[in-house]
């Protein structure tokens, strides 16, 4: 089985802070990490490889600094890393990104060997769109299952993907090749291993492809290929926390007190009434 897993090199948003004086975001000196929601995807890919053999190829569209992120996942047991990198990819929205990644997957299929599954995380912590998996599937014309928690091969070479929604566990059987997106925290990732990391350092199995390698039209990539326009961003105002300590007589009293507090706030009360009783 040849499995591609898409990862994104994102700023560690925990470390991004508001400057108390200027009110802007401080991004300087914030190190990047592999998008945390990509780890279930990586883990699923590695499990499929454990079960059926083959190889796992991590793909990312990013500047060269993302090599560090590729090395991290190579340390987990991923076999190859592919860095789709070009100045002309910069400023891409999800459409232009998924286009480059889809073309990257096509090139892998052609030059390295046919890809059976492409797996993505649910979304990224720096933009939270959850578009990429679906868009790659549509560029490639492959079936797509998201919110996946597990997957295995069944008869006729189909992939059975377990998907969990709020109310049910669903199982889908799809023909390969297919695209899968995992749910947040669906699988616990394995740690980085000395032997894998050492192999990565020595064999350096990271390939970089630029726009010419992929044969893409620059009008379809980066800022130019991005129809999305960010009209405005409004930061959520920080709501100061009230420090209230209430010692309830019993659980019933506690529940009553909490409800009373919630309903005493007009906007919360409105929201609750709508959610609980459908009242407007």
């Amino acid at each position: 089985m040849r499995i591609v897993v898409g990862i994104k090199w994102v700023p560690n948003t925990q470390a991004v802070r508001f400057d108390p004086k200027t009110g802007t975001l401080i991004r300087a000196g914030v190190p990047s990490i592999v998008n945390p929601h990509d780890f279930p995807a990586i883990e699923l890919a590695l499990r499929l490889k454990d079960m059926y053999g083959g190889e796992v190829i991590a793909v990312t569209m990013a500047p060269p600094s993302a090599t560090q992120g590729l090395e991290h996942v190579l340390g987990m047991g991923v076999d190859k890393g592919i860095l789709l990198t070009d100045r002309k990819f910069a400023g891409a929205d999800t459409l232009a990104t998924s286009y480059v990644i889809a073309k990257g997957i096509e090139k892998i299929s052609k030059e390295i060997g046919p890809v059976d599954v492409a797996i993505f995380g649910h979304e990224t912590i720096d933009s939270s769109t959850a578009h990429i998996g679906a868009q790659v599937a549509s560029w490639l014309g492959w079936p797509y299952v998201y919110y996946a928690r597990d997957a295995k091969l069944v008869e006729d070479g189909k992939l059975r993907v377990t998907r969990q929604t709020e109310k049910a566990v669903e199982e889908y059987e799809v023909n390969l090749p297919a695209v899968v997106a995992t749910a947040i925290k669906a699988l616990k990732p394995r740690p980085v291993r000395l032997s894998y990391k050492l192999r990565a350092k020595i064999e350096k199995p990271i390939i970089a492809w630029n726009i010419e390698d992929l044969g893409l039209d620059p009008r379809c990539t980066g800022l130019k290929g991005s129809p999305t326009v960010v009209a405005n961003i409004t930061w959520m105002p920080e709501v100061p926390r009230k420090k209230i300590v209430y010692t309830p007589k019993d659980p019933r009293d506690a529940a009553r007190w909490i409800l009373k507090q919630l309903f005493s706030d007009e906007s919360v009360a409105g929201f609750l009434k709508k959610a609980l009783w459908g009242e407007e």
Binding site: V192, R193, L194, K197, K201, I202
Partner: peptide, 13 residues
């Protein structure tokens, strides 16, 4: 300096 001289650094381990 060590890596430039040929040492291999395996980090995150």
């Amino acid at each position: 300096k060590a890596v430039e001289s040929g040492a291999i650094l395996v980090d995150e381990v």
